[in-house]
Amino acid sequence: MPRMTIEELRAKRETVRKGIYLREGEFTCRITIHMGTCGIAAGARAIVSTFLDELEKSRRKDIMVTTSGCAGLCSKEPMATIELGDHPPVKYIELTPEKTRKIFAEHVLGGNAVPAFALGIGSEKGG
């Protein structure tokens, strides 16, 4: 890296900033991929990488991709839950990378759930 001018420093800051967004960001959307033994066996790993891949392309910094344990519906794995803003979470089932991309584009970025792939809207009741 050669010596910089102020403009170059500013540009540099913009590029490196997205490298650390996980550590400081405010998140408006949370994607949870269910990764129990069943989920992993059904191919949840590929779903995670697809989401990450899409996320990278989207250049968005307010989306968190995280994993959790088995959702309890092993036959419908791989599954993912998407929580967007104040909307109730949506659970998607039997995901494939193609479905994942569509969900990412329409639901995560577009704000419209994709009912065709969804199990249902809202979470199980607690208690």
């Binding site: 420093l9 540099k12 800051r13 490196v16 900033r17 490298g19 650390i20 400081e24």
Partner: peptide, 11 residues
């Protein structure tokens, strides 16, 4: 140094 710059370092 990039991490520092990303956190508004050297502003």
């Amino acid at each position: 140094i990039d991490d520092y710059i990303a956190r508004d370092g050297y502003t």
